[in-house]
Amino acid sequence: NKEKKVFISLVGSRGLGCSISSGPIQKPGIFISHVKPGSLSAEVGLEIGDQIVEVNGVDFSNLDHKEAVNVLKSSRSLTISIVAAAGRE
């Protein structure tokens, strides 16, 4: 599966507009579980089932849900590497 990078700058009070969840035991990782229509996440093409592999240089493969949320909230400017639809297989 091809990795792609998206860049998101949080402007004003707009949030990311997506929710994440941890994958099942047999498929660990952090996946996008919800994308709000019209949100920044939707605008850059994030979709439900995409796996987040890295954010701002932080490897997401071994993070738990709480740590992942903290990384996503730690910066107003995010570089997110995803594997599209990895969670839909």
Rank of each mutant, 00 (worst) to 15 (best):
residue 2 K to L: 07
residue 28 P to D: 07
residue 5 K to D: 03
residue 57 G to D: 08
residue 88 R to E: 14
residue 6 V to L: 15
residue 29 G to V: 01
residue 28 P to H: 08
residue 59 D to E: 08
residue 12 G to C: 06
residue 88 R to K: 14
residue 66 K to W: 08
residue 45 G to N: 05
residue 17 G to Y: 03
residue 77 S to P: 05
residue 45 G to K: 02
residue 6 V to A: 03
residue 44 V to I: 10
residue 78 L to I: 06
residue 27 K to S: 10
residue 21 S to P: 01
residue 39 S to V: 01
residue 78 L to H: 03
residue 75 S to Y: 13
residue 28 P to Y: 04
residue 83 V to S: 09
residue 86 A to M: 10
residue 62 N to K: 13
residue 44 V to L: 08
residue 48 I to C: 12
residue 49 G to F: 01
residue 31 F to D: 02
residue 5 K to G: 01
residue 52 I to K: 02
residue 21 S to T: 14
residue 44 V to K: 11
residue 82 I to E: 05
residue 49 G to P: 00
residue 65 H to N: 06
residue 25 I to P: 13
residue 78 L to V: 06
residue 62 N to G: 13
residue 29 G to Q: 00
residue 59 D to A: 09
residue 7 F to V: 14
residue 43 E to R: 09
residue 45 G to I: 01
residue 54 E to G: 10
residue 84 A to K: 14
residue 21 S to M: 12
residue 48 I to F: 06
residue 51 Q to S: 02
residue 23 G to M: 06
residue 66 K to L: 11
residue 13 S to H: 10
residue 46 L to I: 12
residue 4 K to I: 04
residue 22 S to Q: 12
residue 19 S to W: 06
residue 40 L to R: 09
residue 28 P to R: 10
residue 19 S to V: 07
residue 32 I to K: 01
residue 75 S to P: 12
residue 89 E to V: 12
residue 32 I to F: 01
residue 39 S to H: 00
residue 29 G to H: 03
residue 42 A to F: 06
residue 88 R to P: 12
residue 85 A to Q: 13
residue 17 G to F: 04
residue 19 S to I: 08
residue 84 A to T: 10
residue 41 S to Q: 02
residue 54 E to W: 04
residue 27 K to R: 12
residue 55 V to G: 01
residue 44 V to S: 14
residue 50 D to Y: 01
residue 85 A to T: 09
residue 22 S to P: 10
residue 53 V to A: 11
residue 19 S to R: 12
residue 2 K to D: 00
residue 77 S to V: 08
residue 55 V to E: 00
residue 31 F to R: 03
residue 35 V to E: 00
residue 55 V to S: 03
residue 25 I to Y: 11
residue 49 G to L: 01
residue 6 V to S: 11
residue 42 A to I: 01
residue 24 P to T: 14
residue 43 E to A: 09
residue 83 V to I: 14
residue 52 I to E: 04
residue 50 D to G: 00
residue 31 F to P: 03
residue 15 G to T: 13
residue 42 A to R: 05
residue 18 C to S: 02
residue 38 G to A: 07
residue 23 G to L: 05
residue 81 S to Y: 06
residue 89 E to S: 11
residue 38 G to F: 07
residue 81 S to N: 13
residue 30 I to D: 00
residue 39 S to K: 01
residue 32 I to M: 03
residue 79 T to Q: 13
residue 18 C to A: 08
residue 33 S to V: 06
residue 3 E to L: 11
residue 23 G to D: 11
residue 54 E to I: 02
residue 38 G to E: 08
residue 54 E to Y: 05
residue 48 I to M: 11
residue 35 V to A: 00
residue 28 P to T: 07
residue 33 S to I: 04
residue 38 G to W: 04
residue 82 I to Q: 04
residue 78 L to E: 04
residue 3 E to D: 11
residue 59 D to K: 12
residue 25 I to F: 09
residue 52 I to D: 01
residue 32 I to H: 02
residue 18 C to E: 01
residue 34 H to L: 05
residue 32 I to A: 02
residue 18 C to T: 04
residue 32 I to E: 01
residue 10 L to V: 03
residue 24 P to I: 06
residue 40 L to Q: 11
residue 13 S to V: 06
residue 38 G to N: 11
residue 22 S to K: 11
residue 40 L to N: 04
residue 40 L to W: 08
residue 41 S to A: 15
residue 46 L to H: 03
residue 30 I to H: 14
residue 85 A to L: 08
residue 8 I to M: 15
residue 5 K to S: 08
residue 44 V to M: 09
residue 66 K to F: 09
residue 55 V to M: 04
residue 87 G to S: 13
residue 46 L to P: 01
residue 3 E to A: 10
residue 86 A to H: 13
residue 82 I to S: 07
residue 79 T to D: 14
residue 33 S to Q: 09
residue 84 A to H: 12
residue 42 A to N: 09
residue 63 L to F: 10
residue 60 F to G: 02
residue 22 S to Y: 08
residue 21 S to I: 15
residue 15 G to M: 08
residue 54 E to T: 10
residue 74 S to F: 01
residue 76 R to K: 14
residue 38 G to R: 09
residue 43 E to T: 08
residue 52 I to G: 01
residue 35 V to M: 04
residue 25 I to G: 13
residue 27 K to Q: 10
residue 17 G to V: 00
residue 22 S to G: 08
residue 81 S to I: 09
residue 21 S to Q: 13
residue 53 V to F: 08
residue 51 Q to Y: 04
residue 86 A to F: 08
residue 30 I to Y: 11
residue 84 A to V: 09
residue 31 F to W: 09
residue 5 K to V: 08
residue 23 G to H: 06
residue 36 K to Q: 15
residue 39 S to N: 00
residue 66 K to N: 13
residue 14 R to G: 13
residue 3 E to R: 07
residue 48 I to V: 15
residue 27 K to A: 09
residue 3 E to T: 09
residue 24 P to D: 11
residue 52 I to P: 01
residue 78 L to R: 03
residue 22 S to F: 07
residue 89 E to L: 10
residue 32 I to N: 03
residue 15 G to K: 14
residue 88 R to N: 14
residue 3 E to S: 13
residue 81 S to K: 13
residue 44 V to N: 13
residue 55 V to C: 13
residue 76 R to E: 13
residue 46 L to Q: 01
residue 57 G to S: 15
residue 9 S to P: 15
residue 14 R to A: 10
residue 89 E to N: 12
residue 59 D to Y: 04
residue 79 T to S: 14
residue 66 K to G: 13
residue 66 K to Y: 07
residue 88 R to F: 12
residue 13 S to R: 13
residue 39 S to Q: 02
residue 86 A to N: 14
residue 25 I to A: 14
residue 32 I to T: 01
residue 18 C to V: 11
residue 34 H to F: 10
residue 18 C to K: 01
residue 44 V to P: 02
residue 3 E to K: 11
residue 87 G to N: 15
residue 38 G to P: 02
residue 43 E to C: 06
residue 85 A to G: 15
residue 79 T to V: 09
residue 4 K to C: 01
residue 7 F to C: 15
residue 46 L to T: 00
residue 22 S to M: 14
residue 2 K to Q: 07
residue 79 T to N: 14
residue 3 E to C: 11
residue 24 P to W: 09
residue 48 I to D: 10
residue 3 E to H: 13
residue 1 N to D: 15
residue 34 H to G: 12
residue 19 S to H: 09
residue 85 A to C: 10
residue 40 L to M: 11
residue 84 A to D: 07
